[in-house]
């Protein structure tokens, strides 16, 4: 088991290294370097270059290696991240990327994990019931609602829920926190405040992802229910519900564990649109504006962080799968 984790972690690190090259490629993709764009923006705005600015520009030139060959630039960028957690300079917001990226990432991950929890907590019992009572009214309703969630565009559902919440409560529920909680330190009150706001985006993102989870689990379970080991457990006199949970559900859930990894990028994609519509302080809208403004250090950093989160998610789902299924552990 330990060997398995070490092997998977190493291959995760390799993937991360490859992704960092791709992220860097995105950074240097636009013609000209970011610094030149920055200088010309300043020149256009103020018409002159103060000595102080001149020093700052020289310092950056040295720090990010704009005059060096590409591979040196790449290594300077990576060293900055690894040694000092420095992701580079955001030329559009005139701040260090690392100064504000972590808060946005935290909000994004909170939203993604809340949606994931919502999906699994609801989809697993629904799929379980649908498989045990196939072609029942509830089975058809679950299928119908699942496809409805899949078919309605996220932005539309988000707008509708926003409108519904406004009509019912008279309050515009946007953002992830109330104004006074926006920058407060984490506390019980802040978590409660988060829960009051987050249900709309979670509902929107979750409803889109739920259908596929229900379909996968339902069909897995239907396959397992007819396996001889289920009949055998019945012949042993195991009470039916205990039997269904201990044997077929336990086995049908395994393939689902491996989907956690690739559900992450899907959910990230969903957070972008939902965050723009609902004005959520996540990475999504910042990512979009960074790409529009050619703020390449910011865009590249976001790509890198999201990729890292996906790699870690995949690693975790691999480990969970190995824990749950001895057949995989022993391969």
């Amino acid at each position: 088991m330990l060997g398995f984790i070490v092997r998977r972690s190493l291959s995760g690190l390799l993937t991360l290294a490859a992704v960092s090259v791709v992220s860097f490629a995105i950074i240097i993709l636009p013609p000209g370097d970011a610094l030149t764009t920055y200088i010309s923006q300043i020149m256009a705005a103020t018409g002159e270059m103060t000595p102080e600015m001149q020093r700052q520009i020289e310092h950056m030139q040295d720090q990010y290696g704009f005059n060096d060959p590409l591979y040196v630039q790449y290594f300077k960028w990576v060293r900055g991240i690894v040694v000092a957690g420095d992701f580079g300079w955001s030329f559009a917001t005139l701040r260090n990327v690392s100064d504000f990226i972590w808060g946005l990432m935290a909000n994004t991950l909170i939203l993604i994990f809340a949606s994931m929890a919502f999906i699994y907590l609801l989809a697993v019992p629904i799929a379980f019931y649908s498989a045990v009572r196939p072609y029942s009214l509830i089975d058809y309703m679950a299928t119908f609602l699942g496809f409805l969630g899949l078919a309605i565009p996220n932005f539309m559902l988000a707008l509708f829920l926003m409108f519904a919440a406004y009509s019912l409560t008279g309050q515009v529920s946007v953002g992830m926190f109330s104004a006074q909680m926006e920058t407060a330190a984490w506390s019980v009150a802040r978590v409660l405040d988060l829960l009051r706001h987050i249900w709309i985006p979670v509902l929107v993102i979750g409803s889109a992802g739920m259908a596929s989870v229900i379909r996968i689990l339902r069909s897995n379970l239907l396959d397992e229910l007819n396996k001889p080991y289920v009949q055998m457990a019945r012949a042993k006199g195991v009470p039916e519900w205990r039997l269904l949970i201990k044997y077929p559900l336990r086995i049908a859930i395994n393939p689902l564990l491996s989907t956690i990894g690739f559900l992450l990028p899907d959910l990230f994609g969903a957070t972008i649109i939902v965050s723009i519509v609902l004005g959520l302080p996540t990475v999504g809208p910042v990512f979009l504006s960074a790409l529009l403004n050619q703020d390449m250090y910011l865009a590249g950093s976001i790509v890198l962080l999201i990729a890292a989160a996906t790699i870690i998610g995949t690693l975790v789902s691999d480990i969970l799968l190995a824990l749950a299924d001895p057949r995989i552990r022993y391969e």
Binding site: K227, P228, Q231, K236, Y247, A324
Partner: peptide, 21 residues
């Protein structure tokens, strides 16, 4: 009755026993 009186053995133990227990 299933627990104390009668019991079953099946053709293929590989599929008649749970693979994850």
């Amino acid at each position: 009755l299933r627990r104390r009186e009668m019991s079953l053995i099946m053709q293929e133990p590989m599929s008649a026993l749970s693979p994850v227990h």
